[in-house]
Amino acid sequence: MLTFIARRMIQSVLVMIAVGLITFGLLRFVGDPISNMVGQDTSIAEREQLKEDLGLNDPFVIQFANFAKNAVKGEFGLSYTLRVPVSQLLSERLPATLELSIMSALLALFIGMPMGIYTAIHKDSWLTKFFLSSSLVGVSLPTFLIGILLILLFGVVFRWLPTFGRGEVVDLGWWTTGLLTWSGIKSLILPTITLAIFQLTLIMRLVRAEMLEVLRTDYIKFGRARGLSMRALHYRHALKNTLIPVITITGLQLGSIIAFSLITESVFQWPGMGLLFIQAIGNADVPIMAAYLVLIAFIFVAINLMVDILYVVLDPRLRTTVGD
């Protein structure tokens, strides 16, 4: 088990180095960083001086080593446009995004899973048909449209919920949270739903398909022949077997919620990383883009590692092949 985790960790580090190389390439070779930083009237001598100061004349390897060293510490230099360290910007924005994505992942999981189980067990009920047909809407409507419709309905027509920003936030020093104030929670509702709907329908359909598959297996049939109750069969024997593939997809989905919440964030003017990233693209603010890339890659790698470990914990068959 430990060797397995160690091996996976080494693989993760390799992935991160590869991502680092790409990001570094982006940073150094897309456009001229000097002319991005300085104005039209800077003299050539001054530009050369700046180049020397920033270490841009060093050999590639040393430049990359410096970049990697800083990246590990979370330092990606100054934002071109905002003139603030990128690390500071990210740490301001990260809590907003994480709060939003984790809430919507939880929402998707805790509603999507029961719905999937229900639709698998009660194959022919009218509620199943309703869930399945409405889930089609969830899958096919683009996120921004759902967001705008929600804003129209709850923000403009009924005027129940705020339509932009995080509301009042409480600063805990290392983290800012909207979960402790009433207005913060209210502001969270619409973007959470918007972000969750696609994942929710996906999880529901996945759980349903897997569960139907498992319910056809011999061990469920043998369980019935032994007289086990349908309850025990559905919720103990079938559910556990259903979860294994669901975990993989859910893990990857969590990654993509965090990484690509930018559409939702821009619809709701949510002050998260996605919004920051979109603005950075607009301004060609390369340090922010680079930091964002590295961070997202890191989140994906970390989630994947957790999924792999969870797999081994859940499935005894893997434990023996994994070995010690």
Binding site: T217, D218, Y219, K221, F222, G223, R224, A225, R226, G227, L228, A232, H237, K240, N241, L314, D315, P316, R317
Partner: peptide, 29 residues
């Protein structure tokens, strides 16, 4: 079912829940 009439199936490789110990499945029944 199971109490007065027991059943044995063809394929022993798929008749048992792979995620639970043999004991757990016996004890449950």
């Amino acid at each position: 079912r199971g109490r007065r009439i027991g059943m044995i199936f063809q394929d022993p490789l798929t008749s048992l829940n792979p995620l639970e110990t043999v004991g757990a499945q016996l004890i449950e029944t």
